[in-house]
């Protein structure tokens, strides 16, 4: 029975959280309060684990909550519940798009969507950059936090590497692994 309600709760989360993993957090908060499966303080740990492991955040959260609530079966059921609405909605949209791809109205709408989508990616990148490149300085009275120079240097070095022809062809995961090692060695 708990599996069924896990599926139902995560189906709802997947259906109503529009715009990516972070949008699931308010729903999870509500879920914790209404079902008693986990406390709000557990949620912080779940977010931290989801962010520090590979995989899309929303999916990681669902797996984590599902496992904590009902073991491995719970993890699977919660994840499937989260992705079911996406699959249904996207299959409908994709079917529609395939039919109307050449339609001038659809073309015109996409002329507006593409630059907007690019801008949102830049905005997301900037917010990651802000959180990585600054360190919260509790002692300083200024509201501006100090710059985290080693991280900036690492990011710039990797960016140059990504654009440098001999390294350009390498898979992005190699850069990620390299950065993780540098992070550990340099105690970033």
């Amino acid at each position: 029975m708990i599996l069924l309600s896990l599926y139902y709760e995560f189906f709802k989360t997947g259906l109503f959280s529009v715009g990516g993993g972070l949008a699931t957090i308010p729903f999870l908060q509500h879920m914790g309060e209404s079902t008693g499966w986990f406390q709000n303080s557990d949620l912080t740990t779940m977010i931290a684990v989801s962010e520090s492991t590979p995989g899309p955040m929303g999916v990681n959260m669902a797996t984590y909550v599902g496992y904590q609530t009902a073991g491995i079966a719970g993890a699977i059921v919660a994840t499937l519940g989260l992705v079911t609405p996406s699959i249904i909605v996207i299959l409908i949209v994709a079917g529609f798009l395939q039919k109307f791809r050449q339609n001038p109205v659809v073309e015109a709408v996409f002329c507006g969507l593409r630059p907007a989508s690019t801008a949102l990616i830049v905005a997301a990148g900037l917010s990651v950059a802000y959180s990585v490149f600054t360190v919260a300085d509790m002692e300083s009275t200024q509201s501006l936090s100090a710059l985290n120079l080693p991280c900036i240097v690492l990011a710039v070095a990797i960016f140059v590497g990504l654009k440098w022809t001999p390294l350009k062809k390498l898979h992005p995961i190699l850069f990620i692994a390299f950065a993780a090692v540098v992070g550990i060695v340099a105690q970033l």
Binding site: V132, F133, I176, G183
Partner: peptide, 8 residues
């Protein structure tokens, strides 16, 4: 380190 890399 990974996050710095993600920005790049």
């Amino acid at each position: 380190g990974v996050n710095a890399c993600v920005v790049a």
